[in-house]
């Protein structure tokens, strides 16, 4: 990647220290892997993976401000709309394709997951668990859930396809997706007991069914 000043590297490590999902994703990625990060935002995750795992990678992003931030951060970014699929990326051309907290904001949910598995040997998907107890409680009390992972009001949310961990498990089963690992976290801590109730962020690593 383009050389960036040492300061920028420090920035990614610091930002990542607070992002348990970053460190969890990093654990799933082999050093030097070729990574595609869909909906890469300002490139923080890729920057973190570059600094800690020496990955080679590209981000995909549609938002102008995020594309500019990626360029500033020295991250390779391709500006395109994920809803249109991943035309332009060859089959099996990446070790890992990541969709980090973007799935719930996409219309073409099935298509993007299929595209991830076409382009990547492995895929990592993370999403906010709508089944988290705080979300359920807010619904019982009569309001749409608002939380750290769902920070929007019903009228300004970009999220269109929210799901629970149980829903996504079913999705994988119905689409013949072999889940290799699943990690559920809340406030940076791994949740083992009743993850669909107690987990706020779900992370999946999967590949095509053998």
């Amino acid at each position: 990647m383009t050389h960036v000043p040492a300061q920028a590297h420090a920035h990614f490590s610091e930002a990542a220290a607070e992002r348990r999902d970053f460190t969890a994703i990093a654990q799933w990625i082999a050093p030097g892997a070729k990574v595609l990060d869909l909906g890469c935002g300002d490139g923080s995750l890729l920057g973190y993976l570059r600094d800690t795992k020496n990955v080679r990678g590209y981000g995909v992003e549609k938002d102008d401000a995020n594309v500019l931030a990626c360029i500033k951060n020295g991250i390779n970014v391709i500006q395109m709309n994920l809803e249109e699929g991943l035309a332009g990326f060859e089959a099996q051309s990446f070790d890992v394709v990541i969709l980090s907290q973007t799935l719930q904001a996409m219309y073409s949910t099935e298509r993007i997951v299929q595209e991830m598995l076409r382009v990547g040997k492995e895929a990592i998907v993370t999403f906010p668990n709508f089944g988290f107890w705080k979300h359920r409680l807010q619904l019982i009390l009569g309001n749409m859930p608002v939380s750290k992972n769902l920070p929007y009001q019903w009228y300004d949310t970009p999220n269109v396809h929210l799901c629970t961990i149980s829903d996504f498990d079913n999705f994988c089963r119905d689409h013949h997706i072999t889940v290799q690992e699943r990690l559920v976290i809340t406030d940076g801590k791994t949740i083992h007991l009743a993850p669909n109730l107690l987990g706020s962020l779900a992370m999946y690593r999967f590949g095509n069914a053998a």
Partner: peptide, 21 residues
């Protein structure tokens, strides 16, 4: 331009693509 980008991706070049409105 996307054709150029694809060819660069195929070769694993460092490439950034901005599609400006």
């Amino acid at each position: 331009s996307r054709e150029i980008v694809k060819a660069l991706l195929d070769n694993e070049r460092d490439v950034t693509y901005a599609e400006l409105t």
